[in-house]
Structure formats: structure tokens, C-alpha cells
Simulated scan of single mutants.
Amino acid sequence: MTKRQGEVLDAALALLVSDDESLTMTAVARRARCSKETLYKWFGGRDGLLTATVQWQASKVRAVPLDPQTLDRTRLEASLFGFAADWLTVLSGDTSIALNRLAVGHAGSERRDLGAIVLENGPAAMRRRLGQVLEAGRRAGLLAFTDTDQAFSTFFGLTVRDTQIRLLLGDRPAPGPAEIERAARAAARQFFVLFGTSEQAGPDARRTPSGA
């Protein structure tokens, strides 16, 4: 994604969360100060633009590449911590909250395209991205699990907990950087309690979850 394309997608996201009915190629072109021809060339149409905006938002959650030759407990836990911190930061931002509220609002109606796009390019994309990290940890003998999807679901639960649903319902303010860091570190540590191999993961992995 070029810098200019990113600027266009940021404009589309801002338009989407302020009024999803106005997310037309004309409205985005006007807000982003570019031509409709450019938008069609880049994204192919409104569905392509919707998909690209959700992918752009999801791309802010980064999976740090891991070198299998140097991978150890410290590097793997740092990667999981970074992923969890990015994930919580993005989920708790105004854009993601508004985007998910819109997707939920579209469910069960004729306007289901946004919900399907969010599912495929949000949670499903996170699953594919983090799955590669988890598999690297298993191949290195640092993690032990039989089902990658189940391991991902556990990490999701440890990281997100009830934060997203409470934010969507307006039940709590968005967590600040310090709270996000504490939650992300706890998620990575607790994940090793559950899935870390005893000979590689160190003394923390031999605690019970209640003592994590």
C-alpha cells in the first residue's frame, strides 16, 4: 500500500464511521481529494474499497517475523506481547469501535456485506497472521498444542477478554497505553502457562493459571 493509498483509505474509514450511507466512490473521492477513476483503478468498486478499508485497519495489528534459527522463549513472548498490544490498541480505537458497531447493525439486514468483510478481514485475518507465529513456536519446541485454531481462540480470550463487547456497548472508556501494556503482557505470559513446554518455557510456565 502506498502512502497516498493509505491516506485515501483513512479518508474512507473516517467517512464510514461518521455515516456509512455516504460511503460512495463519489463521496470518498471528494473527501480524499482524488478522482473516482483513481479509486476504481485501485479498488475496482465499492466492495473492493470496503474490503481494502477493513484490511487497512486490520494491518495495524502486526505480527513480528520470527527467525527459526534464533527463536527462543524471550523472542516468542515478545512477539505475542507486541501482537496483543497492537490488537488491543486497534480494537479500542474510535475507528474500530464504530466500524464494528456498523457491522453488527448490518447483520440480519440486506446490507450484510460490511459484516462479512469485517469477519473475513478482521478476526479471520488475525487468526491467519497469529497462526504463523504460533506454528513457529510449536516447531521450535516452545509451544505444545494440537489445534492451531483452538490455540488462537485461547489467545484471543486471554487478550481481548470482555474489553471489546464492553467498548461496543459503551460500558467502559477505552484503555490507556499503560493498561493495554499490562493486559498484553499478562496475555502473553498466561498463554505460556497453558501452552509453553516445561523444559523451554521457564518457571512461569509451570504455574497454574490462577497463579499467573
Rank of each mutant, 00 (worst) to 15 (best):
R4E: 14
Q5M: 13
G6Y: 11
E7S: 10
V8R: 10
V8S: 06
A11K: 14
A11C: 14
A12D: 05
L13S: 10
L15F: 04
D19P: 01
D20R: 15
S22N: 11
S22H: 12
T24S: 04
T24W: 00
M25R: 02
A27D: 13
A27P: 00
A27C: 06
R30H: 09
R31K: 15
R31T: 14
S35G: 09
S35N: 00
K36R: 14
T38P: 00
Y40I: 06
D47V: 09
L50G: 11
L50S: 03
L50F: 01
A52T: 07
A58P: 03
A58D: 12
A58Y: 08
K60V: 07
R62F: 06
A63V: 13
V64D: 03
V64W: 03
D67Y: 02
P68L: 09
D72F: 05
R73C: 02
S79F: 04
G82K: 08
F83P: 11
F83H: 12
F83C: 07
A84R: 00
A84T: 03
A84S: 13
A85S: 11
W87F: 13
W87H: 15
L91F: 03
S92T: 13
D94H: 15
D94W: 08
T95E: 13
A98K: 13
L99E: 07
A103H: 03
G105E: 07
H106N: 12
H106G: 08
A107I: 07
A107G: 09
E110L: 07
D113R: 00
L114P: 00
L114G: 04
A116R: 06
I117E: 01
A124N: 04
A125L: 09
M126H: 08
R128I: 08
R129F: 04
L130G: 02
Q132F: 04
V133Y: 02
L134W: 09
R139T: 12
L142W: 01
L143R: 01
L143K: 05
F145D: 04
Q150D: 08
A151F: 01
F156D: 10
G157S: 11
L158E: 02
V160Q: 12
I165W: 03
R166K: 15
L168P: 05
L169I: 06
I180A: 03
I180H: 01
A186F: 06
A187V: 07
A187C: 10
A188N: 12
A188D: 14
R189F: 07
F191P: 02
F192Q: 05
L194Q: 00
L194D: 02
T197A: 09
E199C: 12
Q200M: 14
A201R: 06
G202L: 13
G202F: 01
A205N: 03
T208E: 10
S210Y: 13
A212M: 02
